[in-house]
Amino acid sequence: MIRHLKKEYGLLLIIIGLLFFTSCRRSTLFAGAVPLNGVWPKESAAKFVIPVSDTVSLYDFYVNIRHTQKYRYSNLYLFMETLFPNKTYTRDTLEIMLANPEGKWLGKGWGKIKEDHVLLKSKFRFPLKGKYTFLIWQGMRTDTLHAVQSVGIDIEKSK
């Protein structure tokens, strides 16, 4: 009888654990990054192609930056171009703050690498079905930016 109760108790714990992990997970449409290995020339764009079929749901759009503590600046300017399925496009200039005024890094990380997960737009809808292409360039006043390890984007369903 005790063995039977242990078995049921173990099964119950597994079910509770699965429910916890699946209920806390957000639905991700896309998550990807382009490795830069510490060197990002001004003319080199990170490219992300995302097929979209849902024009009803709301999404949150994040940019992810991984950099080392050797990064020389407290911010990072980015140029982002969005090519829509109907061949129209938009171009935006973004400023990502990587450190506070005292020089403390804002990103997470224990070692020399810091990761910034920055919300760009929340609760937006894709206007068209089809393939979207996102291009991201560094927009700093230097031809080659050093100490940036990768740039990426995450698109998740809004809560």
Results as ranks from 00 to 15, higher is better:
38 G>M: 06
38 G>E: 05
40 W>R: 06
40 W>V: 07
42 K>L: 14
43 E>C: 05
43 E>G: 07
43 E>S: 11
44 S>A: 15
46 A>E: 13
47 K>R: 13
47 K>Y: 03
47 K>G: 00
48 F>Y: 08
49 V>E: 14
49 V>A: 09
50 I>F: 02
52 V>Q: 03
52 V>G: 01
55 T>D: 07
55 T>Q: 03
57 S>V: 11
60 D>Y: 06
60 D>C: 03
60 D>I: 04
61 F>P: 07
62 Y>D: 08
63 V>P: 07
64 N>Y: 02
65 I>D: 05
65 I>H: 00
68 T>V: 03
68 T>Y: 02
72 R>I: 15
73 Y>A: 14
74 S>A: 15
74 S>C: 00
77 Y>G: 03
77 Y>Q: 12
78 L>E: 15
78 L>W: 13
85 P>D: 14
88 T>Q: 10
91 R>E: 10
91 R>F: 02
92 D>H: 00
94 L>H: 12
94 L>Q: 07
94 L>W: 13
95 E>N: 11
95 E>I: 12
98 L>N: 07
100 N>H: 05
101 P>G: 06
101 P>M: 13
101 P>D: 10
101 P>T: 10
104 K>H: 15
105 W>Y: 05
105 W>T: 02
107 G>S: 10
109 G>Y: 11
111 G>S: 07
111 G>M: 05
117 H>Y: 14
119 L>F: 12
119 L>G: 03
